[in-house]
């Protein structure tokens, strides 16, 4: 239960940390830390307006996205605390819950018939397809290292602390931070701040949603980002503590993910769209490399 609550808290803080980092790095005071919560409260207090060309599918999407993100968050452990829901193979369930949320959003976007949303959906589908192998190599690597396929048991079993494992874990955390950038629709893959429909990826699919629906989608994407950040933090934290990381380390590392995202967004421009595919494939290739590395190591190392 604690880990689930932690993911929800992280979801609330992470956006604030990213915004604050960006503001400070650009020499501004920035909005208050929880401004995004006020914005969402405003959205949630509004009704919804639907385009007459959309159907039931379009209306169901926000609920599906939020439900998928929350369910995925249930599977994420936090440091010493096990996930609320854990079973062998929950890593696969986690990946496909994220994919479900993405698929729902794509279908909803296509349902509007808008040319912008069609383009956004096609981009999102491409990036989703390219990042998925990366995610699975990442999970595969964890499974190979520990012999488990559940986050809770994986993080419990990690932390052998051998130098080789530290290298691999750092690599894995690096990969997962990049996955956060891709999945969260942040710079350099996507620009959450842009008002230019033609360049949007994630935002454009939300263009036809307003009020409470937009609020649900926003909260869903926070939870998704927070879940991934917690997994990344858990991976790297497990190296530090013997037999499981301390809760404090995980907290600090999740905050660090926010700072990293904010810093990346401040100091570099977005990719040209046709280079995003290369960027994402690189992330997946790194994950494959990590997987092979662990496989080779496992031939020599004492891994059960």
């Amino acid at each position: 239960m604690i880990s689930f609550l932690f993911v929800l808290t992280a979801a609330v803080f992470l956006t604030g940390i990213i915004n604050r980092t960006r503001a400070l790095l650009s020499g501004r005071k920035g909005v208050r830390l929880f401004q995004h919560l006020y914005n969402v409260r405003l959205l949630l207090s509004k009704g919804a307006v639907y385009s007459p060309v959309t159907g039931a599918l379009f209306r169901a999407v926000p609920a599906v996205c939020l439900a998928a993100s929350v369910t995925a968050a249930l599977l994420v452990p936090m440091g010493p605390y096990p996930a609320l829901l854990h079973f062998e193979g929950d890593m696969v369930a986690f990946a496909y819950l994220l994919a479900l949320s993405r698929a729902a959003l794509i279908l909803g976007a296509l349902d509007t018939g808008s040319s912008f949303e069609g383009m956004g959906a096609s981009r999102e589908a491409l990036y989703g397809a390219l990042i998925e192998p990366g995610l699975f190599f990442f999970f595969g690597t964890l499974a190979l290292m520990t012999g488990h396929t559940s986050f809770t048991s994986v993080f419990g079993a990690l932390g052998a602390g051998t130098p080789e494992m530290v290298v691999v874990t750092v690599l894995l955390a690096y990969i997962l931070v990049k996955v956060v950038l891709v999945e969260g629709g942040r710079i350099p893959v996507d620009d959450p701040r842009t008002h230019l429909e033609l360049t949007m990826v994630h935002e454009v699919m939300e263009l036809d949603y307003g009020g409470v629906d937009l609020g649900l989608l926003t909260v869903g994407s926070w939870i998704k980002t927070a879940s991934l950040a917690t997994v990344a933090a858990g991976t790297i934290a497990s190296v530090f503590g013997q037999g499981g990381a301390s809760a404090l380390t995980v907290c600090a590392l999740v905050a660090a993910v926010g700072v990293i995202v904010g810093t990346v967004e401040s100091f570099r421009a977005r990719n040209r769209l046709n280079r995003n595919a290369t960027y994402i494939v690189t992330v997946s290739a790194l994950a494959l490399f990590a997987f092979l590395l662990v496989y080779v190591l496992s031939l020599n190392l004492n891994i059960e």
């Binding site: 790095l25 650009s26 710079i187 360049t199």
Partner: peptide, 12 residues
């Protein structure tokens, strides 16, 4: 131009 490419530092 910096804003449209998402380069915040140049923009501000």
């Amino acid at each position: 131009l910096c804003m449209d490419t998402g380069y915040q530092l140049g923009q501000v």
